[in-house]
């Protein structure tokens, strides 16, 4: 066992999850690769969405994977950073919109 929770080399072993549950693992990877195929959205657009989500869910493996994927697709660093901001804006918005709940509760409890 490694001494830290995240090891970059573990990303390469992702496919091994299938070994302990072949049916579910295979279904997941089939689904995953289908999702990122060219569709109504381009594979390039989906790569940027994945990068933004990777940041929001704070997955270091996904950040490594989709930064590299973006570079391979010729996506520029400006585009990547804008995608990260889009994710961050939604995430901070999600926090801030709860401020309304706080305000509601405050008002209800106050005379």
């Amino acid at each position: 066992m490694a001494n830290s929770y995240y090891d970059p080399a573990d990303l390469r072993k992702f496919g091994k999850i299938t070994e302990w549950s072949e049916e579910l693992g295979t279904k997941f990877f089939d689904y995953y690769s289908k999702v990122f195929e060219e569709g109504a959205l381009s594979a390039r657009e989906k790569s940027l969405i994945a990068l933004a989500v990777a940041h929001v869910v704070k997955c270091p493996y996904c950040i490594d994977a989709y930064t590299k994927d973006g570079l391979q697709r010729g996506i520029t660093k400006e585009e990547m950073m804008e995608a990260v901001h889009a994710g961050a804006a939604i995430e901070s918005g999600a926090t801030l919109v709860h401020g309304v709940q706080m305000m509601n509760k405050y008002n209800k409890l106050s005379m």
């Binding site: 594979a43 390039r44 590299k68 570079l71 391979q72 697709r73 010729g74």
Partner: peptide, 17 residues
């Protein structure tokens, strides 16, 4: 040629870009 330690993307898609 990729400008770094990564592989080239799909040739056709890159050509379009």
């Amino acid at each position: 040629n990729p400008s770094g330690a990564f592989l080239p993307g799909d040739q056709e898609a890159m050509e379009k870009d």
